[in-house]
């Protein structure tokens, strides 16, 4: 089983998101960075699948050179190979990103053979374009389903197929997809592990391959980012500690939620 996961480095804002003066990106001066959550789960899923079926996990990211940090994190939780497509802009548009990822995937597959599975997040946490995975799958000529919350390679599956579960309101749909396939996964598909001491050591030794790509820009041009206008409400403090309970229940009564 050879699995590729595409992950994006994103800032980890807390109480509010601030934008840089030029409006081009999130002001991350006082923030840490993280792997976009859906993709963190995609990495975990890939590692679990290779633990069960053997094989290797390759993690690829397109971003600033600092995105090596997210690749090393993936190494600390069990991924094997790492590819960084460095860019000097703050972000690439979705078409441009997809083309670069596609070309980098083809370059690997030409020497090592096709990946059985390519995993994406359902959407990136920051820009949320809902499309990079679909575009890459289309370039590769492989099937893709998004919104996946379960991947099963054994069970009642015919050899060479994967079944994938997608969440719908109050249940799920099941897709039977021939391999090689591409899935866009969602947080909740698994509970990502924390790095172990051994994992941390492995991540220091991990070799990150850099693959520089030159790709034309796509049709979507970022002008500026800004925060939506927020309604500021005065907070009514109902009290301190358990003595506040009667005031709380008065409020519940007033709202008609006490049946």
């Amino acid at each position: 089983m050879r699995i590729l996961v595409c992950v994006k480095r994103v800032p980890a804002p807390g109480a509010r998101i601030n934008v840089t003066a030029d409006g081009q990106t999130v002001d991350a001066a006082h923030l840490g960075f993280t792997t976009s959550p859906h993709e963190e789960c995609a990495v975990e899923e890939a590692v679990q699948l290779t633990e069960a079926h053997g094989g290797e996990v390759t993690v690829m990211t397109l971003g600033p050179v600092e995105a090596e940090e997210q690749l090393r994190y993936a190494a600390s939780v069990g991924a094997h190979n790492f590819v960084l497509i460095p860019i000097s802009e703050v972000d690439w548009d979705p078409q441009r990103t997809a083309t670069a990822l596609f070309e980098a995937i083809v370059a690997i597959e030409e020497t090592d053979g096709a990946f059985d599975l390519v995993l994406f997040g359902n959407e990136s946490a920051d820009s949320g374009g809902f499309q990079v995975g679909v575009r890459v799958a289309n370039h590769l000529g492989r099937p893709i389903v998004n919104g996946i919350k379960g991947i099963d390679l054994d069970g009642e599956n015919v050899e060479g197929f994967a079944s994938a579960r997608r969440e719908i309101d109050g249940g799920f749909e099941v897709y039977q997809v021939p391999l090689p396939a591409v899935f866009g996964v969602k947080e909740g598909i698994n509970l990502p592990r924390y790095p172990t001491m051994k994992g941390r050591l492995a991540s220091k030794k991990a070799v990150v391959v850099t693959d520089q790509r030159t790709v034309e820009v796509g049709g979507q041009l970022r002008l500026r980012l800004h925060r939506p206008v927020e309604q500021i409400t005065e907070t009514v403090i109902l009290g301190t500690g358990p003595e506040a309970a009667p005031a709380v229940v008065d409020l519940l009564e007033e709202l008609g939620v006490l049946s």
Binding site: I237, P242, V248, V249
Partner: peptide
């Protein structure tokens, strides 16, 4: 941040406040 954005708030330990609310509801019911 949750307190400043909320319409109403209770400042206190949830482990005490939540059971007290449940008790008060039961008392009134």
């Amino acid at each position: 941040n949750m307190v400043s954005r909320a319409g109403h708030a209770v400042i206190g330990d949830l482990h005490q406040v939540i059971p007290a609310i449940t008790q008060e509801i039961r008392r009134r019911k």
